[in-house]
């Protein structure tokens, strides 16, 4: 048997297998998008983005309450979660031999694997049950708890990529260690850290379970973080399981909007990486 032909056949076969795997991975994504566009795009209108829902049984209305709610809840969650996650990530990367780092990493990994509904239960027990009412803030806390381990690990990985020679250069100029971290290491990795943050935001924007018994959902436009609030994933959930045909159409449209939001965030993360300032060495 000619070994060269055998080798080529085997090579092509393996490449074929891998292309097949890629196609199989993409098919569900494609059908999800197609399905959402087909069933949801028809319901998108100015009204959909600017009005609150019509009373049950009537037609018309929109999901502006859920859009605003998602922005507020996710924004608050980011305000809580990003500084903690990024800060802890910097600590873990800059003091890799400290015992605290070992513990933090372990806890972050456990937290990363925790089902989001468990985190929701936690937020319910500690905030909702104590205050005796549902609130958007409780939802934000639950989402922030989900964000922290994600952001922590991406921040740490990004900082580890900074060449040691850069760190030494700053130290040799007399920079104390903490200022070296802040002005050289962090500045160099800022695009990477931002990417991690955006991806974490995209991830939690679609979370439903932690909001079910914290932010609860609402039919009204609300800006009060201390009160129940609507959010896009909750709206999808409510409308999709509701009895009316119109609700089902709105659920598809809201899902489409949610996917678009996540898509835009991910795309922004990609662009941030591409503009990354070149590091040498």
């Amino acid at each position: 048997m000619n070994r060269r032909i055998l080798r080529r056949v085997l090579s092509n076969f393996m490449v074929g297998l891998m292309i097949g795997a890629v196609v199989v991975a993409l098919i569900p994504l494609f059908f999800i998008l197609l399905n959402l566009v087909l069933k949801g795009a028809g319901s998108l209108s100015m009204e959909f983005f600017t009005r609150t829902p019509a009373p049950a049984g009537e037609t018309g209305g929109g999901v502006v309450h859920a859009l605003v709610g998602t922005l507020l809840i996710v924004g608050t969650a980011s305000l809580i979660g990003l500084p903690i996650g990024v800060g802890a990530g910097i600590y873990c990367a800059e003091y890799p031999t400290s015992r605290l780092t070992w513990i933090t990493r372990f806890v972050a990994d456990v937290l990363n694997g925790t089902p989001s509904i468990v985190v929701g239960v936690f937020a319910w027990a500690w905030i909702v049950a104590q205050q005796k009412h549902f609130s958007a803030l409780a939802g934000s806390v639950a989402l922030a708890l989900l964000m922290i381990p994600m952001v922590l690990r991406t921040t740490e990985e990004m900082i580890k990529l900074v060449p040691n020679s850069l760190r030494e250069a700053a130290l040799a100029l007399g920079y104390p260690r903490w200022r070296t971290s802040l002005s050289v290491v962090i500045r160099t990795t800022l695009p990477g850290i931002m990417t991690g943050a955006l991806l974490a935001i995209a991830r939690i924007a679609g979370e439903t379970a932690p909001l079910l018994f914290t932010a609860l959902g609402s039919q009204y436009l609300s800006f009060d973080l201390d009160q129940p609030m609507a959010a896009l994933p909750l709206t999808v959930f409510t409308y999709a399981t509701g009895p009316y045909e119109e609700w089902h159409r709105y659920a598809w449209a809201a899902a489409l909007v949610l996917i678009i939001v996540v898509f835009v965030l991910s795309l922004g993360a990609r662009l941030a990486v591409r503009r990354r300032f070149a590091i040498n060495g």
Binding site: A170, G174, Y175, V184, A278, N280
Partner: peptide, 18 residues
């Protein structure tokens, strides 16, 4: 800090900050 200000250093590989 003051020691390293008085003693400058140039490294093996050029390592300018980004």
């Amino acid at each position: 800090v003051s020691l390293r200000q008085r003693v400058g250093m140039v490294f093996q590989r050029p390592n300018p900050f980004p």
